[in-house]
C-alpha cells in the first residue's frame, strides 16, 4: 500500500518534470514547424467528425431531457439560456476534452509507446533530431492549440442540435434561439471556458506523451501506455476542470 502511494507521488513528480521539460524545449530553436502542422491536422481535423457528432447529440439530448422540467416551471423560453450557458461553460469543453482524451491521448500513447519499443525514438536521437522536440513538443503543442478550436466547433454543433429541437418542438426560430443564447452569454462564460480548453488540451497531450514516451519495453507496454494515457488524462481533466472553476471564480465573480 505504502509502495502504491509512493508510486503515485513518483508518477506525479515525473509528470511535472515532463511538463517542465516541455516548457524548456518548446521555446528553444529549432522549431519542428512542419511536424507541428502535421500533428495539428491529425488531432484537429481528424477529430472534427467525432467532436461534431458528439456535440450534436449532447445538445439534442440535453434539450430533450430538460424540456419537460422547464415546461413544468413554465420556463421553456429560458431553454436557450440554460442550454447555451451550460454548453459553453462546462459541457462543451468537458465532453470535447473527454472525447479527445479517448482519441488523442490513447493515440499518442500507443504511437510513442511503439516508437519507444521499436527504438525509433533512439534512432531519431542518433540521427541528430531531438525526439522530445520532434515528437513530444509538437504533439503537446498541437493538442493545446487544437482543443480550444474543437471546443468552439463542438459548442456550435451542440447549440445547433439544441436549436433544432427547440425549432421542431417549440417553434423557436434559429435566429431567436441564437439571439437568446448570445444575450445570455457573457465574456465571463466564454473566456474562462476557452482558457480552460487550452489547459485541457495541454493535459491530454502531456499525459499521452508521458505515458508513451516512457513506455516500458515490449508490446504489452504499448497497450498499457495507451490505456493508462486515457484513464489518467480523463481523470486529470476533471481535476483541471475543478481547479479552473475555482480560478475563474476569482476573476469573474459568478
Amino acid at each position: 500500500m505504502a509502495d502504491r502511494i509512493k508510486q503515485f507521488f513518483v508518477q506525479i513528480g515525473d509528470l511535472s518534470y515532463f511538463a517542465a521539460h516541455f516548457f524548456r524545449e518548446a521555446f528553444k530553436r529549432p522549431f519542428e514547424f512542419k511536424e507541428l502542422l502535421r500533428q495539428c491536422y491529425q488531432m484537429g481535423n481528424r477529430s472534427l467528425v467525432l467532436v461534431g457528432v458528439t456535440g450534436f447529440i449532447i445538445g439534442l439530448v440535453l434539450t430533450l431531457q430538460s424540456r419537460p422540467t422547464l415546461i413544468q416551471f413554465g420556463a421553456v423560453s429560458w431553454m436557450p439560456n440554460m442550454v447555451g450557458i451550460s454548453i459553453v461553460r462546462e459541457i462543451g469543453p468537458v465532453i470535447t476534452a473527454l472525447i479527445c482524451a479517448g482519441r488523442i491521448a490513447s493515440g499518442i500513447g500507443a504511437e510513442l509507446g511503439s516508437m519507444r519499443v521499436t527504438e525509433q525514438i533512439d534512432a531519431m536521437e542518433v540521427s541528430g533530431t531531438n525526439p522530445f522536440k520532434y515528437l513530444v513538443v509538437t504533439r503537446m503543442l498541437a493538442t493545446t492549440l487544437m482543443l480550444p478550436l474543437l471546443v468552439v466547433f463542438g459548442d456550435l454543433v451542440a447549440l445547433y442540435g439544441s436549436a433544432l429541437v427547440e425549432n421542431l418542438k417549440g417553434d423557436v426560430s434559429f435566429q431567436l434561439y441564437f439571439n437568446t443564447v448570445f444575450d445570455a452569454l457573457e465574456f465571463g462564460d466564454l473566456v474562462p471556458a476557452t482558457i480552460k480548453s487550452f489547459f485541457f488540451g495541454f493535459t491530454i497531450g502531456l499525459v499521452g506523451c508521458f505515458k508513451g514516451y516512457y513506455s516500458d519495453k515490449g508490446t504489452a507496454g504499448v497497450g498499457y501506455a495507451a490505456n493508462t494515457a486515457v484513464v489518467v488524462s480523463s481523470l486529470l481533466l476533471f481535476v483541471v476542470d475543478f481547479i479552473a472553476v475555482f480560478v475563474s471564480d476569482i476573476f469573474y465573480e459568478l
Binding site: G44, L149, L150, V152, L156, F182, D189, L190, T194
Partner: peptide, 20 residues
Amino acid sequence: KLGIFVVLGTALLLFAAYLI
C-alpha cells in the same frame, strides 16, 4: 485542410466573442 479548420475555428471564436 488544417488551415481551413484553424481559420474557421478562430473565426467562430472571434465571432462569438464579437456577438457577446
